[in-house]
Write a protein that binds this DNA or RNA. Structure first.
Lengths: 117, 117
DNA sequence: TTCACGTGTAAGAACTTTCTGACATGTGAA
DNA sequence: TTCACATGTCAGAAAGTTCTTACACGTGAA
């Protein structure tokens, strides 16, 4: 499997999604096998709404995939599993990704008005 | 060069440091060669105090290294350069790192008191 | 002495992320 | 009908991050 080469903006999203202890734990738990959210919440020890939010962030970044299924007894269950990803980060690869950033953040033009007094 | 295998806590720090467009641009710029902060600030187009903050975050994560030097004309110059790093992230490696997290975040015990009404 | 250039830091505004505690929906079984 | 269990969402508090403005210090040259 060859490493992904995400665009700058996507890279930021993926890194931000990974940069959180709870979300790391979610991924680690899902790595053992798929699970549905209520059960996963109990497993990890956080509230369901909170888990819901973290899963959204992970899914938006493409790190997990969720599918809504109907269990045998008719309950709607949302199962999540890890999407396998392969990120290789070095000074070089990061620099390349940075080149494709869509100038989102710094916005305003000249700064540092600081008068030397 | 073999990839690093950071502990969970350190991994979160590194990822958080990388998960920002400005900091990505800083790394990309420094990848071309070392630079001192005032010049780098002009280069990137952000204020010096802001850059100072971002550099601190990058240095704390071990992604850049700064050295204070005296220029020929006696000025104190702080030069930064990228530390070369090599992170290989997959579902597996992330899961392993997560296992070493020092239970920092979720803190409180049972949650989801939600009465089923 | 003043200017231009370098360094650092601190206070507060503005914004984003994280988290809790409701509330709403649905199903099947007792 | 009520309970247990599944889903989702929203409002607001709390905490963290980002950013500006302003101040401090230093040097060498005009």
């Amino acid at each position: 499997m060859t490493p992904d080469r995400p665009s700058g903006d996507h890279l930021v999203e993926v890194l931000a999604a990974l940069a959180n202890p709870i979300r790391l734990r979610i991924l680690a738990t899902l790595a053992h096998g798929r699970d549905y959210v209520s059960h996963l919440a109990r497993e990890i020890g956080i509230s369901r709404p909170l888990l819901h939010m973290h899963l959204q962030r992970l899914e938006a970044a493409g790190l997990v995939v969720g599918t809504l299924e109907l269990s045998d007894d008719g309950k709607a269950m949302k199962y999540f599993e890890v999407a396998d990803f392969d990120l290789h980060l070095t000074a070089e690869s990061v620099a390349q990704a940075a080149a494709t950033l869509t100038r989102p953040d710094p916005a305003p033009g000249p700064a540092d008005k600081e008068k030397p007094r």
